[in-house]
């Protein structure tokens, strides 16, 4: 009965949103880093001009975005955690993975640098120092691409963060921007993608303390959700978006996006190994 009423309600509400019926649109499940950095705000209007398709971005952590794809609630997933993406493909939820672009992770920390890691390029040494000194560290804790990368780095450092954590290690379960806000308010270290950091405005006393380590590489990939699993997926429109992203035009658009003159993402669609 309630469901029926909801249906009627939804139908009634539909009438007041006429845009729904005729609009050519797709839903892209993507990450907070691509949205919070402002990339989508820059490239999506270009895509719409080129094709007339509006892209509706639901910004979530990578893990959550992939789950949204698994449930069939998105047409395309655009995320950054290769291992998780390959799992998604092997489960049959994705059609094919295309590398799109990369940037890098950076370790952010307070200017006072209580763990004394400034100046090093070695992220593993830095994390070990943070742990040894018990310096406050904020983890996304949300299965996002950044979170997955962070856990991998702890593992490389020989630290089982699930077991070796102390009160200095705080999981906040929120998006990149929110995690940066918390780090800024509590003078903590935090791993961030460069794009979100560059467009983040509430930095307080934070600055980049470690960057440039090869292990901080951050690759983004895009996949069409498999229409064989979810027939409602708008395969044609979704593939059009993917094709545009990896086209010279799309790649140039990504390269053109700058915050304060600084490029945030580096297109690499034709790097087969990415």
């Amino acid at each position: 009965m309630l469901a029926r009423r909801l249906l009627i309600a939804a139908a009634a509400a539909m009438l007041s949103f006429p845009a729904l019926a005729q609009d050519k649109s797709i839903v892209v499940a993507s990450t907070t880093s691509t949205q919070d950095s402002g990339l989508f705000g820059y490239i999506l209007p270009l895509f719409k001009n080129a094709t007339g398709i509006s892209v509706r971005v639901v910004a979530q952590g990578t893990g959550q975005a992939l789950d949204t794809g698994r449930r069939g609630d998105a047409d395309v997933v655009f995320v950054h955690a290769k291992s998780a993406e390959e799992k998604f493909l092997s489960e049959g939820f994705g059609v094919k993975r295309f590398p799109v672009m990369y940037n890098d992770f950076i370790l952010i920390g307070p200017k006072s640098d209580p763990a004394g890691v400034k100046g090093t390029k070695d992220i593993v040494k830095a994390l070990t120092a943070i742990k040894d000194k018990g310096a406050s560290f904020i983890s996304r804790g949300d299965r996002s691409g950044t979170n997955i990368a962070e856990i991998k780095l702890w593992t490389i450092a020989g630290i089982d963060i699930g077991k070796d954590r102390g009160p200095w290690y705080k999981e906040v379960g929120q998006g990149m921007g929110a995690a940066l806000n918390i780090a800024s308010a509590s003078n903590s270290y935090v791993l961030s993608d460069r794009g979100t950091w560059l467009s983040f405005k509430n930095r307080g006393d934070l600055e980049i303390v470690v960057e440039g380590d090869k292990r901080l590489f951050n690759q983004y990939g895009v996949m069409l959700v498999n229409p064989a699993k979810h027939p409602t997926v708008k395969a044609k429109l979704g593939q059009q978006f993917i094709d545009w992203l990896i086209s010279p035009e799309g790649q140039a658009a990504i390269a053109d996006y700058k915050v304060n003159g600084e490029q945030l993402f580096y297109p690499n669609a034709h790097d087969r190994g990415a």
Partner: peptide, 21 residues
């Protein structure tokens, strides 16, 4: 309203009518 849910076929998730619901 999720595609994998009982009313998924309506395709309302991530739309304003879903928010109304």
């Amino acid at each position: 309203l999720s595609r994998s849910g009982p009313l998924g076929s309506l395709g309302l998730l991530f739309t304003p009518p879903a928010m109304v619901c």
